[in-house]
Computed example of a mutant assay.
Amino acid sequence: MNEEEMNYCGGCGATLQQEDPGATGYVPEEALQKEPIICQRCFRIKHYNEASSVTLNQDDFLKLLGHIGHKEALVINIVDIFDFEGSLISGLARFVGGNPIVLVVNKIDLLPKVTNWNRIVNWVRRLAKEQGLKVVEVVLCSAKKNIGFDRVIQAVEQYRDGKDVYVVGATNVGKSTLINRLISDYSDLEAELTTSHYPGTTLGTVEIPLDDGRNIIDTPGIVYQHRLTELVSKKDLGKIMPGKPLKPMVYQLNEGQTLFFGSFARFDFVRGARQSFTIYASNAVPLHRTKLEKADELYANHKGVMLAPPSEKDLLELPPLAKHTLHIQKGKSVDVLISGLGWIKVNSEAGAELAVHAPKGVKIIQRDSLI
């Protein structure tokens, strides 16, 4: 093996590095003595039927999507129902050409058990269409609870028509868990990992061979900085990402009242008739109600302490809060999504003026109610 080849993974072709285990091409020191040298992700797929989570920045990810558009393939786009708009890949349809897209909506186990699933599918289709995304099927599933995965497998078989399968998604949507299931259920892992990449041209995809000579292509997760999940510390990530079904919290608020989500965000009911607001967020994030006129002072004096998480130390790593003003029309039932943190359902018969304060850059969206 020449020196140039030693700089690239023998499985996926990614540039090898030892600095960041979460980035493409990571290889531990002991693996450098083996031949061919393969990155940690390829090693896990080959020996343990396990894909690890690797990420790309947005520019590199868009280059990867452009590559898919020149192939005949089935695209599996995995999104997170807890942060649907935040995890949806904007402009995906422009990059994948005429290839069919199956939209796999993960983490449905987080929704209340009384949820109308047909309504959720219709809601997803409508919002995907608004984003210009034409999908051949929407599959609701929970990789964690093994719900709906049989339909994912059936959809792959139904729509791929002998083509390769590209799996794409943002970080923290459960892509690795689903890839692991695809590997264990679908792939002939006795075959070697592909070595068809040319050094210097790869973006870190891993090709997992199928029985018919085609491949499942595991792509790195895209990092979207507009999601709070990308900005918080690892410790706080476990708090804002719910692990159990959401327990909606209903607050009857008068105008001039504020709800704090720890120190992560703040929701102001600025003006309107007394009405109810339903909070869908992790139970590990405490809510604190106060008067709007005292909210600035309360935050300044108690952020990171009484208003926690995050702690004072972790709060220093977050951008300052930015204000977003929202006007809810009369008779509307809408959600206000704070990307990565959850959403507030507004049932407004008389209309309402609201303000949301979240770390600068975090996406705030007003949408038709999910539930």
Rank of each mutant, 00 (worst) to 15 (best):
L370I: 09
G342E: 12
A322Y: 10
M306S: 10
S369K: 15
W343I: 11
H302T: 10
K345R: 15
K303M: 08
E312A: 10
I365T: 03
G331P: 03
D368V: 15
G351R: 02
K323W: 14
E349T: 13
M306H: 00
L316K: 15
K363L: 13
L337P: 06
L354R: 11
L298W: 04
K303I: 10
G342W: 15
P309A: 05
Y299C: 10
E353P: 00
G331Y: 00
I365L: 09
V334F: 14
S333I: 15
L341D: 14
L370V: 00
K313H: 02
P359M: 02
A358Y: 05
D335R: 12
L315M: 05
L307E: 13
P359Y: 02
K313E: 05
D296M: 04
L370Y: 02
P310Y: 14
E297P: 09
L337Y: 13
K330P: 04
K303D: 14
L326I: 15
K345G: 07
L337E: 15
L307P: 12
D368P: 15
P310F: 14
H327T: 09
S348I: 06
I364H: 13
E317D: 02
D314G: 11
P309D: 00
W343N: 14
A358F: 07
A308S: 10
D314I: 08
V334D: 07
S311N: 07
L354S: 06
K363T: 10
Q366I: 04
Y299I: 02
L315S: 00
A308V: 06
V305H: 08
K360H: 07
G361Y: 06
L318H: 06
L315A: 04
V346K: 13
H327D: 03
S311C: 13
E297Q: 09
I344G: 05
L298T: 10
V305D: 05
I328P: 13
K332G: 06
V305I: 09
Q329L: 03
P320C: 02
A322H: 12
K332I: 09
A300W: 09
K313D: 05
A352D: 01
D368F: 15
I365W: 03
T325I: 00
L370M: 11
Q329V: 07
K345V: 15
D314Q: 13
K313C: 03
I328L: 05
D296V: 01
G361S: 03
L307H: 00
N347E: 08
A308D: 06
Q366R: 01
V305W: 12
P320W: 00
L307I: 10
L341S: 11
P320K: 04
P319R: 08
Q366H: 08
H324R: 12
V305C: 06
V346R: 12
V334Y: 09
E349S: 13
E349M: 12
